[in-house]
């Protein structure tokens, strides 16, 4: 494994992002805007903002990175650059780690800005630390990236890739306990949610906000999903085709 090739790939992806300032602006400003709207929509029920806003800090990076990765890798597949790369001296693992590094950095910037806005002017109170919140946001972003990478192999067009967001992530969002507490859901939903990565992303942020519950277990689950999905994604990067 070569750090040089991983870093070259990460830099290449970041350069692509840099040439697209509108995407960067949307990545950072849209979550801030949504947080602000949420704050004032529930101005009479601050406890709802307390409950939902924190979890959203973990959900945003996941949604954004899912979308960006599925479109970006789909482009690599359809434009022929992926096939081109795979006959060069870069391994599939290096390719994926390059993406992880680039989007990890992007997620870090997003998480710092959005959490600062939420904790500062919007007055979100947390019992855990902001650093932990940012760390979870980065892990969630990588999870979104891993799902996007894997899913993009099932999409033939960018239209399809984008439609996987409501199909794959929104059900997870509903079942994750973000909107309604999981305990009040039918048993079967609770059971299904145990096998969905987003559940643990939401649980982890909830723990940081309330300061109760162990974050460690949630982070462990997120990491397991991350490794499994990245491996599944690597398998879909085929060198040979018919």
């Amino acid at each position: 494994m070569s750090i040089r090739r991983i870093w070259a790939t990460a830099q290449r992806i970041l350069s692509q992002l840099r040439h697209d300032p509108r995407t960067i602006a949307l990545m950072i400003l849209a979550p801030c805007l949504l947080m602000t709207i949420l704050k004032y929509v529930y101005q009479d029920q601050p406890q709802v903002f307390q409950r939902v806003a924190g979890s959203l800090l973990g959900v945003f990076p996941m949604l954004v990175m899912f979308l960006i990765t599925s479109v970006a890798t789909l482009r690599e597949r359809t434009s022929g650059t992926l096939e081109r790369l795979l006959i060069l001296p870069i391994s599939r693992l290096e390719f994926i780690l390059g993406y992880a590094m680039a989007f990890g950095i992007a997620a870090f910037i997003q998480a710092v800005v959005v959490s600062t806005v939420a904790l500062g002017p919007l007055g979100l109170r947390i019992n855990g630390s902001q650093i932990m919140l940012i760390l979870i946001a980065i892990l969630d972003a990588l999870l979104g990236m891993a799902i996007g990478l894997f899913i993009s192999s099932f999409a033939k067009t960018e239209f399809q890739a984008v439609q996987f967001l409501p199909a794959i992530l929104l059900p997870q969002l509903l079942l994750s306990g973000l909107l309604a507490p999981r305990e009040s859901m039918p048993i079967i939903f609770q059971w299904i949610a145990n096998f969905l990565p987003l559940t643990y992303a939401v649980e982890a942020t909830k723990s940081v906000i309330s300061g109760v519950g162990s974050i460690g277990t949630d982070l462990l689950y997120i990491t397991v999903f991350l490794v499994a999905l990245l491996s599944a994604g690597a398998v879909t990067l085929k060198r040979k085709s018919k």
Partner: peptide, 29 residues
């Protein structure tokens, strides 16, 4: 993988990068 140079008709380059950025990326790999 280091011994074959391959040019494809579909011009498999990154269209959202500059010429120089494209060349530097492939050179670094």
């Amino acid at each position: 993988r280091t011994k074959i140079g391959y040019f494809t008709q579909s011009a498999s380059i990154y269209s959202d990068l500059t010429c120089l950025e494209n060349l530097h990326y492939f050179a670094r790999l």
